[in-house]
């Protein structure tokens, strides 16, 4: 009886020692959570989540103040990846119909050069100066739509980005494994 107890205690000590050693010597330095969450967010900086930009939203998620389903540009895919990252069940997504990727385009004949859109653009994707026509750099536009409301002459429109031969993707091959219903 005594020997059994001693053996068990010894085993416990040895295993505990190994665990303790492993937890110290194999510790993984992790990115701060906020950075990781921010990396999953699409960086449109659109503020549709109710926070001024992606980083503040990421901070709110990290603190547990915000739900993870408040990012329409990220879409369902984004929610899924966020849920995976945080190890939670993906919450229901409301009003998240997948929107085709769009960018803003300024009608150069209507623009009066008021610079209001330039100030509203979170990624400095609009160039121009006061009293001069403004233009959006298509490559930099994230499609956040933040420039739409400030424009006094409604000269900015969202244009869906069309697929061309460079952005075209090979589709998922159709598998005919299932019997037609």
């Amino acid at each position: 009886m005594l020997s059994a107890i001693l053996v068990m205690a010894a085993i416990g000590l040895v295993l505990g020692g190994i665990l303790g050693w492993a937890s110290v010597s194999y510790r993984v330095e992790e990115d701060p959570l906020v950075e990781k969450i921010d990396a999953v967010l699409p960086q449109t900086q659109c503020g549709q989540c109710g926070y001024p930009g992606c980083k503040p939203y990421a901070e709110a998620i990290a603190k547990g103040e915000a739900e993870i389903n408040k990012c329409p540009p990220g879409g369902l895919e984004g929610i899924k990846r966020m849920a995976e990252l945080l190890g939670v069940e993906p919450p229901a997504a409301e009003g998240m119909e997948p929107k085709p990727k769009s960018i803003a385009v300024i009608d150069e004949n209507t623009c009066i050069g008021c610079t209001l859109c330039i100030q509203s653009c979170p990624v400095d994707a609009i160039i121009g100066a006061a009293k001069q026509m403004h233009t959006i750099i298509a490559d930099q536009c994230t499609g956040c739509e933040l420039c739409l409301p400030p424009c006094p002459v409604d000269c900015i429109a969202m244009v869906v980005v069309k697929e061309d031969v460079t952005t075209w993707k090979w589709r998922y091959p159709v598998h005919m494994m299932k019997r037609a219903a």
Partner: peptide, 16 residues
Amino acid sequence: QEKRASDQARQRHEFK
């Protein structure tokens, strides 16, 4: 590509 675009957007936003 998306990752690059979003990294760039983040940088530009932070810079702004």
